[in-house]
Amino acid sequence: MSEAILTAKNLKRHYEVKGGFLKPDATVRALDGASFTLTPGKTLAVVGESGSGKSTLARVVTMIEPPTEGDLIIGGRKIGPEGASGDRDLRAMVQIVFQDPYGSLNPRQTIGQTLMEPLLLNRPEVSAAERETRARDMLAMVGLRPEHFERYPHMFSGGQRQRVAVARALMLEPKILVLDEPVSALDLSIQSQVLNLLMDLQERMDLAYLFISHDLSVVRHIADEVLVLYLGQPVEIGPKQAIFEAPRHPYTKALLSATPVADPALRKERIKLEGELPSPMNKPQGCSFNPRCWRRQDVCTKVEPELQGQGHCFACHNPIPLDETEAA
């Protein structure tokens, strides 16, 4: 296995919420202790429901926001609470593709300008002609036509815009690409085109992907490793095979079971989760999943479980036994 390009250890991001009149200040633990590594050519998928801290993780890894606590080491360099401001080389290493292809392109810039902007800002030594050549090459690489260079985003469909967004992210030759729900706003027939493009590019450029998604069928297809987040905390992390075929954490199992399968012959009894995600401002005592868990024991309401295991880790006092998982 090749060397890790990014290592996160116990990464936390908290937000202070100013209390109003008669209300105390509160801390939102949007991301609360995530550890993982990214390797060139591999994809780590992050799954979880809304409010699980997926997007916060994306913002921290992209250095849009500094971590409150924990270590983030990118390409051998440490990013502390002061962030990475001003360090162009470091910033260029991690780029991001957003979910909404309609909001992520500047409507007043042509596709060409959008693609050339990162070079203009970060590589002043590159001449204007060279910039244009590189942008045009990138346009071809993501499967768009040369005449698209002069056009404005409103003339493009969602799938084409997402290709442009990918192209822009790759202009600085990053090592890591954070994909924040890159296909969930796209139609099914377009989704597969974009997924194929992403897989091709990864292979060609040896990119490390942090693939954030709530769609488990997409994750199952594209991921090498999966990290399951619940209320900002990792509840399970491991190789894709293990997570999908032998989930140990009840939440992972419930998530898998709730995901509809596109085969009417396989209609099955789902594990029904009671209730909804609690507010991250006021997490339950002990294991944060315990109010919704059907395997809850006394200890779960008191003691917060630690991530345990090697390779395939999970944070649960009463994990699903290995022989039981086969049925899933």
């Binding site: 992209t62 849009i64 991001i96 957003f98 909001g103 992520s104 500047n106 800002l121 822009r168």
Partner: peptide, 26 residues
Amino acid sequence: SKDYVIAARVAGGRPIRIMFRTVLPN
């Protein structure tokens, strides 16, 4: 708060440029 502004920041745009070149025209 739109994504393209964050994208410009990730691409390394300085605040002044983001204020007047990225956001203002829109």
